[in-house]
Simulated scan of single mutants.
Amino acid sequence: MGWFLAHEEWQPESLVEQGRLAEEAGYDALLVSDHLQPWVDAGGAAGFSWATLGALAAATRSAALISAAVCPLFRMHPVLVAQAAATVDRISQGRFELGLGMGQAVNEQPLAGPLPPYRERLERTAEAVRLIRPLLQGAEVSSDGPYYPVSAMRLHSPCLAPTPLYLAASGPRSAEAAGRLADGVITSVKDVARTRREVVDVARSAAAAAGRRPPRVILTCFLVLARSDEEAWRAIQPWRGMRTPNRLREGSPRRLRQDADALGRETVLRSFPRYGDAADVVELCRTIVDGLAPDVLALQVAAADGTSALELLSEVPERLRS
């Protein structure tokens, strides 16, 4: 069972404390998001995920640390992603697992401009993976591009042991790439049947066709923890830009916030699943586990107070195991 640490919601010092408390509560995986900017320009956060991962590596003892997910295509060169990943792996004594994604406009556009078409992003991802995987293992790499030319080099502080590499996917095209290129797939589950049909089964079929072992399945489940509309509204302040029609193309948190405000409070509230107590969350998790049999299911909880939410849901891992 995992706990999702969202840089777009909480400041990094809070995330490190949440990670420590989550491990104490029995969550055995900590998923860490990567954001240059939050979803809105007021009420969110955006710490540097690699620094937070390093702090978590020092503050925890046993939980797996999973990036969910970093983009090696625009803001950071694949070689630098590999170096950062290997460093966190060593500090955590081999507990790091590398989740990669193809980027979001709100994070990549300020430095790279509008995202290129999906086909190019997929080509870039395949080239990045071909560089990152051997680098993590300490092998020498060189490449003449076309996107990431590299002169012959290797990492002099590689991973302590083979590090799993995952790709994020929200639909069948990326799921196919995850099965073909990576060791697993990371996806957010909203509808169990759709996630199984469009992501999990696709990734498993692609892995089989490529002669690879079945991919690990890492799921995140987003929910608002609140007992009233007022509490829910406070909880979703950092997230409301994620429900706007232009969220995949818009690189400005200010405009995302304006678009969310134009939707109106009630529309935004209805767009987020809300749960009020641990018992309901346990039942939600059981439904997902029974339907998808993930290797990791992580709770991504929007709440007015992160520490209080973690305390309320501290019994979830044990109840799911019983």
Rank of each mutant, 00 (worst) to 15 (best):
G99Q: 08
D261M: 13
E266D: 15
L80D: 13
A59S: 14
L320D: 04
R180A: 12
V88R: 07
P214D: 07
P245R: 13
T87P: 05
C71P: 00
G211H: 08
V189E: 04
A139M: 13
P12W: 11
R95H: 12
R319P: 04
D191I: 10
H77C: 07
P110G: 13
D28I: 11
A169C: 12
E315F: 03
P164Q: 13
P273L: 02
L21S: 08
G251M: 04
L256T: 05
A206D: 07
A226M: 05
P117N: 12
V81H: 02
T60N: 09
G99P: 05
G171R: 14
A42C: 06
T220K: 02
A57N: 05
G251F: 02
E176L: 05
V70A: 11
L225N: 09
W233I: 03
N246C: 01
P215D: 10
R213N: 07
E127Q: 15
P158S: 06
L248P: 02
G179E: 04
A298Q: 02
A226Y: 01
T163G: 01
R180Y: 11
C285T: 00
A25F: 08
D89W: 10
R265N: 09
D89V: 14
M76D: 12
S252D: 13
G171T: 10
G94R: 10
V224R: 09
V289A: 05
D280V: 08
Q237I: 13
N246T: 14
A85F: 10
R154P: 02
F222L: 13
